[in-house]
């Protein structure tokens, strides 16, 4: 494992910690899209079905369990915690699941490497992860007074994707037979989706102003 991959994973982990801190600490999930969180849970479930059959390393197994556990907890808090669920912006979080899930499913069926249930679901998870942030970005646009934790959450998540691209570039030049067009394409698409957000994030940071995305 190279330093970019490790840093990327740590950013991912940190983004989840920041989100959980916000949700449990201030008992509010204001500005957080439940749809994006549920899509991430679906991404992790469909991707990590091989958790007990395909052992790579203790690190990988532990991280998979952590991602499954924390994303379940986040969805649970937002849906069922009697205080936290009151702070969810349900009326604003209107992005349609089907708009993201259906194309991902069709593409997975059309492009899967082999046609086994595990492989098709894994491919589906790669496509879905690329677009799962979209409900969150739309909600962010509609949210007035985005708090720091929410802004930092999305920033950390975007950084994780950016670092994974550096990881792939590094692996491309250091490993033989490291050719993963599907993963690379989806990863680049996913990172491009964040570009607009990054622009306004840095702008607000530079001007020392509160983050606001133009509608």
């Amino acid at each position: 494992m190279n330093v970019f991959r490790l840093a990327g994973d740590m950013m991912h982990l940190l983004s989840i910690v920041v989100l959980l801190l916000k949700i449990t600490g201030i008992k509010s999930c204001r500005g957080i899209s439940l749809k994006t969180q549920e899509l991430y849970l679906l991404v992790f479930i469909t991707r990590y079905l091989d958790i007990f059959t395909n052992f790579v390393s203790l690190y990988n197994t532990v991280m998979k369990l952590v991602f499954l556990g924390t994303s379940s907890a986040i969805v649970y808090y937002m849906r069922y915690d009697r205080i936290i669920k009151l702070t969810y912006d349900k009326e604003q979080d209107t992005f349609k699941y089907l708009l993201l899930v259906a194309p991902s499913a069709v593409l997975a069926l059309a492009t899967s490497h082999v046609y086994t249930v595990l492989e098709v679901l894994w491919t589906f998870s790669i496509y879905l992860e690329a677009v799962a942030i979209m409900p969150q970005l739309v909600l962010l646009q509609r949210t007035q007074n985005i708090d720091n934790l929410t802004g930092n959450y999305v920033f950390l998540l975007g950084s994780y994707r950016g670092l994974y691209i550096l990881n792939w570039i590094y692996r491309f030049f250091t490993e033989k037979h490291y050719r993963q067009w599907l993963v690379w394409t989806c990863g680049v698409v996913q990172t491009i989706i964040y570009c607009d957000f990054f622009y306004y994030y840095f702008l607000s940071w530079q001007n020392n102003e509160k983050l606001a995305l133009p509608a």
Binding site: R5, D9, H12, D50, N54, V56, S57, N60, M63, K64, F67, H113, V114, E119, W122, Y164, N167, H177, Y178, Q180, L182, V183
Partner: peptide
Amino acid sequence: SAPSPAKDEL
């Protein structure tokens, strides 16, 4: 068959 995409990332 062609090599399966690497599943060593998260």
